[in-house]
Simulated scan of single mutants.
Amino acid sequence: MIKQHQIYTLPSGAIVKVNSKVVGCPDWNCIYQDKGRLGVQISLSAAFISKFGEVWA
């Protein structure tokens, strides 16, 4: 289950923090946490995060 404020590593090695759910669809607004893109916002589908995202403990 995806939770707000969780941090994930994506298959590309990028690190993102889940910010908020997009209104009206199953996507999540996420913010990059790695140095090269720190603070840049991206929307990812819940299916993509669930399948490919690795949760930081």
Rank of each mutant, 00 (worst) to 15 (best):
M1A: 08
I2Y: 05
I2R: 01
I2C: 08
I2L: 11
K3P: 00
K3F: 13
Q4G: 00
Q4C: 02
H5P: 04
H5S: 02
Q6H: 10
Q6N: 11
Q6V: 04
I7D: 03
Y8S: 03
Y8P: 01
Y8T: 05
T9V: 14
T9S: 10
L10A: 01
P11H: 09
S12W: 03
A14Q: 09
I15H: 06
I15R: 09
V16G: 05
N19I: 14
N19A: 14
N19V: 15
S20I: 12
S20E: 09
K21G: 04
V22R: 02
V22Y: 02
V22F: 00
V23K: 13
V23G: 09
V23F: 13
G24I: 01
G24R: 13
G24H: 12
G24K: 15
C25M: 11
P26F: 00
P26N: 13
P26L: 11
D27I: 10
D27T: 05
W28G: 10
W28M: 07
W28C: 08
N29M: 15
C30K: 04
C30M: 05
I31Q: 09
Y32G: 07
Q33K: 15
Q33I: 10
D34M: 08
D34N: 12
G36P: 02
G36H: 08
R37W: 13
R37L: 12
R37F: 14
L38G: 03
G39Q: 06
V40D: 14
Q41K: 12
I42W: 09
I42T: 11
S43C: 12
S43E: 09
S43W: 03
L44G: 02
L44A: 07
L44Q: 03
S45H: 13
S45A: 10
A46E: 14
A46S: 15
A46N: 13
A47T: 14
A47P: 00
A47C: 05
A47R: 15
F48N: 10
F48Q: 06
F48C: 05
F48R: 05
I49R: 00
I49K: 00
I49S: 05
S50A: 10
K51T: 15
K51A: 06
F52Q: 10
F52C: 11
F52G: 04
G53M: 02
V55P: 01
W56R: 10
W56L: 10
A57F: 05
A57I: 00
A57R: 09
